[in-house]
């Protein structure tokens, strides 16, 4: 497997370290995930040194993606879930196909949301190759 077949994820927000662990496990060896501050993580994605950004806050809305939106632009970020809307395969597949590279969701959904997002990213990457994400 070449290094560019590895998807590089940055996780930021509430329990970023836990998020990174879940992402890495969900990737089954195809994902490298690191826990970072939101500004640092978004800057890595902007510079092309990471492919995707996962952000949480308690509400899943503005705080999870504020720094990513400021640095990457609103067209690159998508809210995948809120306390009233669970993250779903369909929603995430749509966001990924629209070219979103930063995803926000509530902390309470991390365990279910991250595997869904990773699965969608890998599926999109397999279909579209290096055009997918920020690679």
């Amino acid at each position: 497997m070449t290094s560019r077949e590895i998807i590089r994820i940055v996780a930021a927000g509430v329990d970023a370290a836990g998020m990174a662990t879940i992402a890495q496990e969900a990737g089954g060896g195809r994902v490298e995930a690191a826990a970072l501050g939101d500004m640092q993580g978004a800057r890595l994605v902007k510079k092309g040194q990471a492919d995707f950004y996962l952000g949480t806050c308690w509400s899943g809305g503005g705080g999870a993606l504020a720094a990513a939106t400021a640095l990457l632009g609103s067209t690159k970020v998508g809210i995948a879930g809120t306390p009233g809307m669970a993250v779903s395969d369909e929603k995430v597949a749509q966001l990924v196909s629209e070219g979103k590279i930063a995803f926000g969701f509530p902390y309470e959904q991390s365990r279910s949301a991250i595997p869904i997002i990773i699965k969608a990213i890998l599926a999109h990457h397999d279909t579209n190759g290096e055009e997918a994400g920020n690679g």
């Binding site: 939101d38 509400s59 306390p83």
Partner: peptide
Amino acid sequence: THLAVALTRLNRLEMEAVPSAV
């Protein structure tokens, strides 16, 4: 960040955050 975004939401007369039982 949360404070600033939440206060902005209120300042812009946007919908408040959805309550969370958790």
